[in-house]
Each structure stands twice: as C-alpha cells, then as structure tokens.
Simulated assay, not measured.
Amino acid sequence: MNKELKWFKSSRSTDPGPQNCVEAAVLDGEGMAIRDSKDRGGAVLQFSVTAWSTFTAAMGTSAPPPGAVRG
C-alpha cells in the first residue's frame, strides 16, 4: 500500500455533525483505501478499481449489484 496516502472525507461529512465517518484515499490508479475516521491508525480496507466502481455504481441504485448477498 502507498506509504503517504492523501486521506479525505466525503463532502457529505460535516463538522460539527455525526463523527461516524470514513475516510478514503486513492491508491495510485489501483483502487481505493477506506478507514474509520475515528481510528486512523486502525485497519484499512483496500478495494480494486473494479470493486470500487461496482460499489459506487450500486450506491446510485436501489438494487444490489448482481451476485450481491443481502444480510
């Protein structure tokens, strides 16, 4: 993973507001990294370009992507 990621919060995250946010960083054309903004030293999830594109496309619809498992 990139050593010096440039983390950012969603434009929908507001201060002072709920602090239940995630931060994202671009992985040099290899996808996205996501972390909990309250635990910046904690776990980082990494998503490939394809996985991230599928996720963000699904967020614009009411249906899950094909093959998705509902909880």
Score class of each variant (00 low, 15 high):
2 N>K: 07
4 E>N: 15
5 L>S: 06
6 K>F: 04
6 K>A: 10
7 W>L: 11
9 K>V: 09
9 K>A: 13
10 S>R: 00
13 S>T: 07
13 S>M: 04
14 T>Y: 04
15 D>E: 06
16 P>D: 01
17 G>C: 10
18 P>Y: 00
18 P>R: 00
19 Q>C: 10
19 Q>V: 13
20 N>R: 09
20 N>V: 07
20 N>K: 08
21 C>T: 07
21 C>I: 03
21 C>H: 09
22 V>M: 07
22 V>T: 07
22 V>W: 07
22 V>R: 04
23 E>T: 02
24 A>N: 06
26 V>R: 07
27 L>K: 02
28 D>G: 05
28 D>F: 13
28 D>N: 14
28 D>I: 05
29 G>H: 11
31 G>L: 03
32 M>N: 04
32 M>R: 09
33 A>L: 02
34 I>K: 06
35 R>F: 07
35 R>I: 03
35 R>S: 04
35 R>H: 06
36 D>C: 11
36 D>W: 15
37 S>G: 08
37 S>N: 11
38 K>M: 02
38 K>N: 08
38 K>E: 01
39 D>C: 10
40 R>E: 15
41 G>A: 09
42 G>K: 01
42 G>S: 13
44 V>P: 08
44 V>F: 12
44 V>G: 05
44 V>M: 11
46 Q>N: 10
47 F>C: 07
47 F>K: 01
48 S>E: 02
48 S>N: 07
49 V>G: 05
50 T>W: 01
50 T>M: 08
50 T>A: 14
51 A>F: 05
51 A>W: 01
53 S>D: 12
53 S>P: 03
53 S>E: 11
54 T>N: 10
54 T>Q: 04
56 T>H: 02
57 A>P: 08
58 A>H: 02
60 G>P: 13
61 T>Y: 01
61 T>W: 00
61 T>D: 13
62 S>P: 09
62 S>Q: 14
65 P>Q: 03
65 P>L: 01
66 P>I: 09
66 P>M: 11
67 G>T: 10
68 A>I: 08
68 A>K: 00
69 V>P: 01
69 V>H: 08
69 V>S: 07
